[in-house]
């Protein structure tokens, strides 16, 4: 198998690390070599954060470079746009259709771009959902990231049962059921954005 390159991007504090851990664990179930690269420290304070996950027969470098990502998982629209150029031409973007204003926008020094999903759709397959709203329906807005993960799972080639088991092993024990429900919510959402 050719090495699969996945990126998880978002805003510091959104829980990208937990999602990357689930991805790392699922790749190990396939007996793949796996490398993950995370961001800790200063950037986690509300800054733009990126995590790389690579799995395949043998993985050397732990980062995904521009133009090499198969899947871009974005927890926020602007962050999807920021890392769009990391995608391969046929890559898939899984994006949480939500907006978090960065400080330059809050202070009025910059404008939040309009029509991000349309921009993303130029040349890439886009799958979007307002996962934050969906998570609230499940009773806890924090599991939005597992909904997004469920959508991404459709593009990664592991069985639903394997995902559910890995989630059970990775998330805090009290939240297993909630996270599995969130995963399935995303997993069932397979419609590409902009297509009927």
């Amino acid at each position: 198998m050719e090495t699969k390159n996945v990126m998880i991007v978002g805003v510091g504090g959104q829980g990208t690390l937990l999602t990357s851990r689930v991805l790392g664990a699922i790749a190990l179930t396939g007996n793949y070599d796996v490398k993950l690269s995370e961001v800790h420290g200063m950037a986690q304070r509300g800054g733009s954060v990126v995590t790389f996950v690579r799995y395949g027969e043998s993985v050397a470098e732990p980062i995904v470079e521009e133009g090499q990502a198969d899947i871009l998982i974005a927890f926020e629209r602007l962050e999807a746009l920021r890392y769009m150029h990391f995608l391969k031409p046929d890559g898939a973007v899984i994006v949480n259709d939500t907006r978090i204003d960065p400080m330059p926008v809050v202070t009025g020094a910059a404008k939040y771009p309009e029509g991000i999903l349309e921009t993303l759709r130029q040349g890439h397959r886009v799958f979007s959902i307002d996962a934050t709203a969906e998570a609230q329906k499940l009773g806890n807005s924090r599991v939005f990231n597992t909904i997004i993960l469920g959508m991404a799972a459709q593009h990664m080639g592991f069985s639903k049962e394997e995902w559910l088991r890995v989630i059970a092993d990775t998330v805090p024990p009290k939240t297993v059921e909630l996270n599995q429900m969130a995963f399935l919510t995303g997993y069932q959402h397979t419609r590409q954005t902009g297509e009927e």
């Binding site: 733009s48 602007l78 769009m84 400080m103």
Partner: peptide
Amino acid sequence: PAQIPQRPPI
């Protein structure tokens, strides 16, 4: 890369 607002840590 898209020319978009930076997101510095806060």
